[in-house]
Computed example of a mutant assay.
Amino acid sequence: MKIITLTTDFGTSEYTGAVKGVIQSINPEARIVDITHNIQPYNIMQAAYVLYSTLKYFPKGSIHVAVVDPGVGTERKALILETEDYYLVGPDNGIFSLFEYNHAWEIEFKEASPTFHGRDVFAPAAARLSLDMNPEELGREVKNIEKIDIFRIETEARKIKGEVLHIDVFGNIITNIKKEIFSRLGIKTGDRLRIKTLNKSFEVKFLSAYGYAEKGELILLVGSSGLIELSENLGRASEVLNISPGDILEIEAQ
């Protein structure tokens, strides 16, 4: 029984149900796993991060469908990528930027709604892959795909300017700053750092775990995906600071 995962910006809407219905109609035995349908609408970078932090935990042979597709209906390609461990199915808009792949195919189709390729293109392709159809039967091989530099930051002396990739269910603010950047700049656990957002400037400690902070204290730490997070212990930093994915964050070592 093949696993097909779904990552979309559809929310709890009828669009999610339609995608699942198409998959189950083609392969009733497919096991569908929802990674999330709560990607911020049209936020390709957030979707790329969620895929990067999640797909490695699924078994080999899984098929991963990602639909965050502001360019739906245009000339952007519809893709199947084959990696060492699984297939990726979705639009050619940078959503798969963080994955190495062996082969890529552009899905060929005759009829599809210009506003809903998730239902009419990606869901059928994933379902047919789960029935062991070869990707060559679904499209033509292509050499290059769109890439986004998800981890692009600016550094100056001991100052880092990055971007918010994701807000998790606890309100933690996950940035695109890798932990290695802190190591390179000599930032150590216990250091105090100045944070600047669009509307605020404040100091926080860099700690190793939430529990070392007082209740309600804002801190920086390395999250489970190896990226720097801004968090409030036993609270929701994103609401306290009014921060959303795509916002710019500046961190300066004191």
Rank of each mutant, 00 (worst) to 15 (best):
D247R: 01
R192Q: 14
I23Q: 11
V89M: 04
L129V: 02
N199A: 12
S13P: 08
V164S: 00
L249S: 07
E136H: 10
T83K: 04
E137P: 12
L165Q: 05
G71Q: 05
V22G: 05
K77Y: 09
Y57G: 11
E252R: 12
Q24C: 13
I195E: 02
N27D: 14
I107F: 01
I80P: 04
D149F: 07
E163S: 14
G223H: 00
T36E: 03
G226N: 07
N176M: 03
L88E: 06
Q24M: 15
I243W: 02
S208V: 08
S53I: 04
E84L: 10
A157T: 10
G246H: 01
I32D: 00
L88W: 04
T12S: 14
E106W: 02
I251L: 15
K179V: 11
T12E: 15
V164T: 01
A209H: 13
I228A: 01
Q24Y: 15
P28E: 09
N134G: 10
V169A: 13
G162F: 04
G190R: 10
D9A: 06
R184V: 05
L131M: 11
R128H: 12
D132C: 02
R128M: 15
D168G: 08
I4H: 02
T83Q: 05
L165H: 03
K110I: 14
L234Y: 11
I148L: 15
K188D: 13
A157W: 10
V222T: 15
A112G: 10
P59E: 03
E229F: 01
L6W: 00
N102A: 09
I4Q: 03
F58Y: 13
A66H: 00
K77S: 13
T83V: 09
L234H: 09
P28K: 03
R192W: 12
R194T: 14
S62M: 02
D168F: 09
F122Q: 02
E100Q: 13
A213Y: 05
Q40G: 11
S62I: 01
K179I: 09
T197R: 08
V164N: 00
T155M: 02
P114Q: 06
P124S: 10
I95F: 09
N144K: 14
H166P: 03
H117I: 05
R194H: 06
G118A: 10
Y15W: 12
L138V: 02
K159C: 05
